[in-house]
Amino acid sequence: MSDETLPDAIVVEHLSKAYGPKWVVRDLNLRVPTGCVYGFLGRNGAGKSTTIKMLTGMAPADAGRVTLLGQDVATLTPLVRSRIAYMAEGHPLYSWMTIGQIVQFTRPFYENWDQTLVDQILDHFELSRKQKCGRLSRGQQAQVSLALAMAPDPELLILDDPTLGLDTVVRRDFLEALIQLIQSRGRTIFFSSHVLGDVERVATRIGVMIDGVLRVDCPTETFRDSVRKVVLGFNGEPPDFPGCEGLVTWRRVGLELELVIVNWGPAQQAVVEALEPRWTDVMTLNLEDAFIEYTRGSKRSLPLFTRGTKRADSTVIERTA
């Protein structure tokens, strides 16, 4: 059976949640195809963790519906839940248990528990079964959580910021193990992260939440390729930008006008040229830069230092005098 004929692993319809008067998640609609590795992005407070909790049934939604592996999450049967792995943010484990004990505790809940895989993962990360979970580093806790999550051979993995707080080396090890497991088993993974490099390495599709609303839902490459940063240089005070199709945001930085535009093309170029700038830079961005430009809106951090900023990571694809 080809992937196109498989049902979506995650279907979210009109999902909303508010805390008091504030909407944390608003009318979220999302489909994650089976076999997809979906990176769920957003700034702090954008609603990622709340969404993930609603996906796993750990937080009730105010409105909307979530379907996991074809079953409504509100009435998820134990059998379907056993096919879904969930790694919560911070990898909570019982601190008084040893690694061996937590494996023994978790094992009876699953019929198809792969103890060999658990042993392989624990051995790969050089984790002793006698170590207490409370004395493990964050990275080791993540590794134990990964072993516990993978052992029942889940079809769907939901990971809430799995690499949060891990140092670069541990993060890389963790991701490589994750990639290996994904490739060998072809599972669906939905994960949130703040580390855009990780997302770029792993995710085939991304979603970007901004203030509780899903603004982007497309293949990773599409997002990276369609966001452009356009800088216009002027001799004097830059004019107001009149707006154009695909404009995400614009701002003045000294004698420059910075635009973030999705799907840069002749129509947008015509609007820019009408302002008669002294020069124009159109830059492609890597995922991290594209995400930052797309999500930070009109606010800029440390505006005092922006004039001297080098654009070392970006490629100048066009400059007009």
Partner: peptide, 14 residues
């Protein structure tokens, strides 16, 4: 408080 509820409640048991 220890957030282990998230770990426990995802076990396949009602």
């Amino acid at each position: 408080w220890r957030q282990t509820a998230l770990f426990l409640l995802h076990r396949p048991l009602p």
